[in-house]
Design a protein around this nucleic acid. Structure first.
Lengths: 252, 252
DNA sequence: AATTTGTATTGAGCTTGATCAAGTGTTTTT
DNA sequence: AAAAACACTTGATCAAGCTCAATACAAATT
């Protein structure tokens, strides 16, 4: 007996036009027809598990990737086993842009939890974008945005104190979760304290101490990876240098 | 009496195809015909003097700019009069890429000395690139390269010690001067110690002390802005963490 | 349930590089 | 030429945040 009411996974049409992330992602600003053309080159593969590499430094660039669920860190490994975490990525975000220059990845990417991605073969995308000005425009915008974000990070690492760094980090995630329809004040961080510290240019212990201190000061409640932000306004003042009572501000 | 042998400045045809910087700049990889098309949208204006702004944070994006002579710093000013230096630019380098995202500059740019630039109106460039795949490709590459460079800078600020930072800085300039046909070991730095420190996330005093120490150790000779690198190999080992004798290496 | 392994927290002490301060040298202005 | 403004250097002191070490807690394995 065949049951015609059972929803078969094969029948779920995964497509850009149905995707809730479309406004955050490459199709942003594309017409429905253009979106279909983009859709035709996108591949959806098996999900990655925690710790899996999406790609490694040195791999040839094959595809750009958009996270559709889960989260990813990108990082540059160093000879001695260490690494520099470059960024954490949430659904809707495009990764692999660094690899366009030499058709070769300059960083590695690892899934922080079970993660699904759309793959967009770069050569197809490039070809498509040269016959689709709106897609070319969107690519320029996304590449430019990445540059702007990196600049903010340079300021964070060059000028900000440890507490400013962590507050900035937390508010960044708050805003990004909010944009994706999740709570801005109650979320799980998928990365370890070690990875947070690495990303922010701080030792693990410093990150741990700051979480404790922020909690003591009533700014947030934290238990392991679960974070609840209790005082967004005060966190925001910390981000902007805590004008009021900073005895020692870093060199300006 | 008219002297037909006198070279009039009006008769010097400034054009991409004659430009010694073409291989470093946008025309890289373009056919002679495509180069002429690009050339037709490029504007060459009056030179900027030391301290002049090429553009300011918040200005609308009008043109991307390529330095043709002189040098430029880009930086994000902060309310309190401070700034974060984002990069120093030499001839052949393209600036303003951060502004594509929102058609608005996210940083300011100032001439460090007398500086000439080519201006490339972005809307013309974008239009041209959608009918010229090689130009589109070159734009993607340049944007991607910028992202890669920023990542290296994140590692520098996140992980490296003061001496590693300064050595990296010096070798970077060494290589860039070399690529432009100048000496890799004898050059003038157009920025102040303060600007170097700001860029590297260090206090002026630290930069000054490091120059003194590097000189004492025979790595270089420095007098004011004039730098002579005396031991490139040893500087290179410092860049890569000085494997040998580092008592305390920063968290990895 | 017990063991192992990995992750996070907390404390004590130390180091790097910042800050403060004074002085020297250079460039610009008068 | 003198004065003023600015850039750089050098020294003394201090603190933010790192390292080391021990412990606590959680998750995975037996």
């Amino acid at each position: 007996m065949t049951n015609r009411n059972v929803v078969s996974f094969e029948n779920i049409k995964v497509a850009c036009k149905n995707c809730s992330l479309a406004t955050l992602c490459l199709p942003m600003g594309l017409s429905p027809e253009d979106m279909e053309r983009l859709d035709s080159i996108v591949k959806r593969g098996r999900p990655f598990h925690r710790g899996d590499h999406l790609f490694r430094e040195g791999d040839n660039l094959h595809s750009l990737r958009v996270i559709t669920s889960g989260s990813v860190k990108t990082f540059t490994p160093s000879e001695d086993g260490g690494e520099q975490v470059l960024s954490f990525h949430l659904p809707g975000e495009l990764i692999g842009l660094d690899a366009i220059q030499n058709e070769c990845h300059t960083c590695s990417a690892k899934a922080l939890e079970t993660t699904a991605v759309c793959e967009i073969p770069f050569h197809n995308l490039e070809e498509l974008s040269s016959s689709m000005p709106s897609l070319q425009h969107q690519m320029y915008r996304l590449l430019s945005r990445e540059i702007g974000q990196d600049s903010e990070m340079l300021t964070l690492l060059g000028k900000k104190s440890a507490e400013e760094r962590l507050a900035t980090f937390l508010l960044s995630f708050s805003e990004r979760f909010k944009k994706r329809g999740f709570s801005a004040t109650d979320f799980f961080l998928s990365m370890s304290r070690h990875e947070i510290g690495n990303y922010l240019g701080l030792a693990v212990e410093t990150v741990s101490r700051l979480f404790t201190r922020f909690q003591e000061e009533g700014l947030l409640h934290v238990e392991r990876k679960h974070v609840q932000l209790l005082d967004l306004p005060r966190l925001a003042t910390i981000v902007h240098g805590n004008e009021n009572g900073r005895s020692h501000q870093r060199h300006v």
